[in-house]
Structure formats: C-alpha cells, structure tokens
C-alpha cells in the first residue's frame, strides 16, 4: 500500500510496563496478557491517516531491562518519535523516566517527538502515580502526555496518532528535514518532493526522497 510518509517510532521504558502490549493493541487491536517477553527488539507497523495523507508507522519495541540498555541505544538512530512508557501502578517505573529521557535525548536526533505514556490506567485501584505527576513531568521536559490502557485500548490509538500529528506538524513547519533519513522520516515512493501535492521539503535539498 502506498503512503506519503513513513515515520519510525521507538517504544522505551522499564520492563513490564506494557510496551509490547501497547504495540499489539495498536497494530492488531487486541490485548494479549500472556506473551513471551521481548529480548532485543520487535517490530510492528500500521498505516494511519493524517490530514488526508497516508502515513506508515514503523514501530520498534525494545527490551526494557537495564542490561539491554546499551543495545537499545542503537535503536534510537533514525527515530522520529518515541513513546516513553511507565506503569501508573509502579512508582519506580516513573522514577526511572529521567534516565530514559537522558538516554533518548543523547542518542536520538534533537527533533524527535517524545510522548510520555502512563500505561495501565484500567488499574485505578492500584494507582501509585497520580495523573498530575505525569502531566507535570511532561510539562517540565517538553513532552506530550497521555494515560493509556493497553488492556481496554483506552487512548492507545490517540497516543500513537497524536505523536504522528506532532511529527507531521514539525514537517509542515519545516523543522524536520525530510530528505535526511536520519530523522526517521521517509517519503513514500510516489511522493517525491517534486510532487506538487507535497509540502515543500525543509532544509533545501531537492534530490528525490528515499523509496520504501
């Protein structure tokens, strides 16, 4: 299927916060409480529409355990968006956000859009991190924020799509150089920058965008 853009996402956060479940809910619209844990990296993809344009999301789901951190770092390369996930029922996963954020900022391109996600919002009774705390953290660090439930699917679509909207807006504003693949954005095969229907590429370069 053809698309106007391809965005690369990466999902990061402590082990057991529900990264793989969020991905599965988004790509397959189902919740699988029992699954093999992620070792290394898993992939998912889905097409969405923003502003009438088809956008393919290519999502990298990573292992959360600290031992894997050194290799997770190499996955940031070329990511346009990151979902930084914590578990609202486990404060330690919230406390580790700063480390994750440092890692993300250090190893990705500076324009990468980061969405902070407080997952497991269905477990209200076991809540350990207030929604306001998540909001405050996001505000302080310039992130978008949402609480989601991979189990009930609440806000899952929104989390992935709002991130894409933000990236799309950055392209419109000329912040992202879409001709530089290191930014995690690729132009679809039939949408070369010479196509009059496309927003004009930022950063000057007029050579054709990469195909997919």
């Amino acid at each position: 299927m053809s698309y106007a853009y391809l965005f690369k996402y990466i999902i990061i956060g402590d082990t057991g916060v529900g990264k793989s479940c969020l991905l599965l809910q988004f790509t397959d619209k189902r919740f699988q409480p029992v699954h093999d844990l992620t070792i290394g990296v898993e992939f998912g993809a889905r097409m969405i529409t923003i502003d009438g344009k088809q956008i393919k999301l290519q999502i990298w789901d990573t292992a959360g355990q600290e031992s894997f951190r050194s290799i997770t770092r190499s996955y940031y390369r070329g990511a346009a968006g990151a979902l930084l996930v914590y578990d609202i029922t486990r404060r330690d996963t919230f406390n580790h956000l700063t480390t994750w954020l440092e890692d993300a900022r250090q190893h990705s391109n500076s324009n990468m859009v980061i969405m902070l996600i407080g997952n497991k919002s269905d477990l209200e009774a076991r809540r350990d991190v207030k929604k306001e705390e998540g909001e405050a953290f996001a505000r302080e660090h310039g992130l978008i924020f949402m609480e989601t439930s991979a189990k009930t699917a609440a806000n899952v679509e929104e989390a992935f799509i709002n991130t894409a909207k933000e990236i799309y807006q950055k392209i419109q504003d000329g912040v992202f150089d879409i001709n530089n693949e290191a930014n995690g954005i690729k132009i679809g095969p039939q949408h070369s920058p010479s196509n009059p229907n496309m927003p004009s590429p930022a950063g000057g370069g007029s050579q054709g965008g990469g195909c997919c």
């Binding site: 082990t15 057991g16 029992v34 699954h35 093999d36 844990l37 355990q65």
Partner: peptide, 12 residues
C-alpha cells in the same frame, strides 16, 4: 522483582 515479572512470560 525483575524475575517475578518475567515468570509468566516464558513459553506461556
């Protein structure tokens, strides 16, 4: 704690 979180995620 890490181990406990992973017990149900091995060849379920």
């Amino acid at each position: 704690e890490d181990i406990k979180k992973d017990l149900h995620r091995q060849f379920p």
